[in-house]
Design a protein around this nucleic acid. Structure first.
Lengths: 106, 106
DNA sequence: CAACAACACATAGATCGTCTATACATAGAC
DNA sequence: GTCTATGTATAGACGATCTATGTGTTGTTG
């Protein structure tokens, strides 16, 4: 995969997964990996900075949890996060259409 | 438009337009703008560095031309450029499918 | 005839996000 | 006892786009 394509999409993917129920970083990466059929391998260096960014922007709310000797930081969507996700999806759709418009040499 | 989405796609769009016949920078930007229905405004700071990059990688061959008092640098695809375009399109398709896989919560 | 938009290429510097690499720590398997 | 998987986190490198600016020509409009 050309990792440059990922730029600007990671946040949308993260928000989408969290929108379906509170979850934590590692699990998010696994879910994205599975759903993209192994295509998106979110690395720590992309995943955690993105989560922190989204939390700082109040799009996510976090709470620590301890289970099976594992510290987990659970994230859930805020109302603002939900709005942001909708906006990002629309952006994505418009973008994909734009690309198709150029590639489709209409 | 979220300009971050564009990362890594500009080269594909440029190669696609040039693949349909030799053309020059300004014209490429106009074509991409028109075909994407005004969505992609390729700025000089993205366009020209990308063209130079592709030329340096031998994906494009350039030649200067003078007409109507205007200096124009015409680009055409090399064989390597054609291969690169095909590869980039496949990447794009795989990427778009990956995103759909995550968003489509299958 | 002066001003401005459009044409046409180019580069410097800022900004931003992903990557690699590293760190720490626990659980379970071999 | 070492390796893999789980789990979060940061520093620094890298790369691509953006804004802003520069140069020069053509054509139009007040």
């Amino acid at each position: 995969m050309d990792s440059r394509l990922l730029t600007g999409t990671v946040e949308m993917l993260i928000l989408e997964v969290i929108s379906e129920g509170p979850t934590y970083g590692y699990q998010i990466a696994q879910t994205v990996l599975a759903r993209s059929r192994g295509y998106f391998e979110l690395k720590e260096g992309s995943l955690y900075p993105a989560l922190h960014r989204l939390e700082r922007q109040k799009h996510l709310a976090a709470s620590w949890s301890e289970a099976e000797g594992r510290r987990r930081k659970y994230y859930k969507l805020t109302a603002a996060g939900s709005k942001a996700l909708t906006a990002k999806k629309q952006e994505w759709t418009a973008f994909a259409k734009g690309v198709q418009g150029v590639l489709g040499h209409v």
